[in-house]
Design a protein around this nucleic acid. Structure first.
Lengths: 203, 203
DNA sequence: CAAGTTACAAGATTTGATATCTGTAACTTC
DNA sequence: GAAGTTACAGATATCAAATCTTGTAACTTG
């Protein structure tokens, strides 16, 4: 695993992922990473200012990959917005489920960051909200959805599906019923977005 | 605080609450509780089979009080179902917010139990789902809501509002924007429940 | 015999000395 | 001077010994 003399940020990130996978987020140290690369730990600090920053960079890589995968769905004009929204929400869940299954230690490391209110996590949420807003706006344009404020509607959808994307619920995702639950919530939400406005009948 | 000779389950529960408040859920011991009551810890075990059971009993007391408070709202015929649903969901959140504010240690103790998949927690969820189902069914009866299956709809509402009642989100509840977020989600959900059926337009 | 006691084994937690880790600084090397 | 090194202080983690906790049992008392 020890990369040769060109020690760049990417090699450090790859080694960090490997160490996180092997030792788990609680026991992985910067010294371990340096040892895996065959350098002193101070060398790592030439590229990353802190252990925290190093972990954020690893997490950002995964989140950015996810964001890009989801962006493809969000922009897919072959699906009408309601169906696209459903597909997108399922994809958010299934990307995270896959990571838990295939890389549980790494996933746990991501969880620590989110809990610590890292800027990486809040930035990712903003990205996702942007994609959701785009889907909703598309729906308003083509007449599938009716809402005055696409951004507010996207926010509501995001909060209403927290159970299916918020890391705090990760323990529930392996439950086989979770997909059905998401389907039910999607159904309810889509009805809400498609509903014709009826004034203040809610109040 | 030491109660006199009649040592009954209620006195033990009261003492346990006090110890939990003072020491927090991680440091509170059965010996502490017994000391507060002026008895040996074995005496406590005559009334409760284990420390776990004792904590569950304390938690159940609070959950049952909450259930009863909410049942009043769920059955309040002076509010039409949409408005009642909104009121009920806000009440669920605000009861928990109040507990966090006024009794943080005790609230933390409840959290531990829920995380441990205690039957107390799952039973409480069933209670709440029952109340929700009743509100939805009332709405179907009086024409405010349209849904084939009140129970499935109630489940969807419950999952869609997880952010506002699931203990995993407790850290977000002190956020001042949380009420507005719940309002937005309520609006979306109510539109969904009120929507006229339009066949398979979602798929 | 219901409701308490003391005594005790097994397991968890605290403690405190030791070792490791983080982050910085002062020093090499190409 | 960019990219690495060793050396170090202070914070953190580790580990084994001592202590405390849990839960049970055998005993006492009104």
């Amino acid at each position: 695993m020890a990369a040769r003399t060109p020690l760049d940020a990417d090699a450090i990130l790859a080694a960090t992922e490997e160490i996180l996978r092997r030792h788990g987020p609680d026991k992985a140290t910067v010294v371990d990473v340096a040892r895996a690369l065959g350098v002193s730990h101070a060398a790592v600090y030439k590229h990353f200012p802190s252990k925290q920053a190093l972990r954020e960079a690893v997490t950002r890589r995964w989140l950015d990959r996810n964001r890009d995968t989801l962006a493809v769905i969000a922009a897919d004009r072959t699906l009408r917005p309601p169906q696209r929204l459903r597909r997108w929400l399922h994809a958010v869940l299934s990307l995270k489920q896959a990571k838990i299954r295939e890389d549980p230690e790494l996933f746990a490391a991501y969880g620590h960051l989110a809990a610590a209110h890292s800027a990486v996590a809040t930035g990712h949420v903003a990205d996702l909200l942007g994609q959701l807003t785009a889907i909703v706006a598309d729906g308003v344009d083509d007449g599938s959805f009716r809402t005055g404020d696409a951004e507010a509607a996207a926010r509501a959808v995001f909060h209403a599906t927290a159970k299916f994307h918020h890391l705090a619920h990760a323990a529930e995702w392996p439950d086989p019923g979770i997909e059905t639950q998401l389907d039910e919530v999607c159904g309810l939400i889509l009805e809400g977005l498609q509903a014709p406005r009826r004034g203040d009948s809610n109040h």
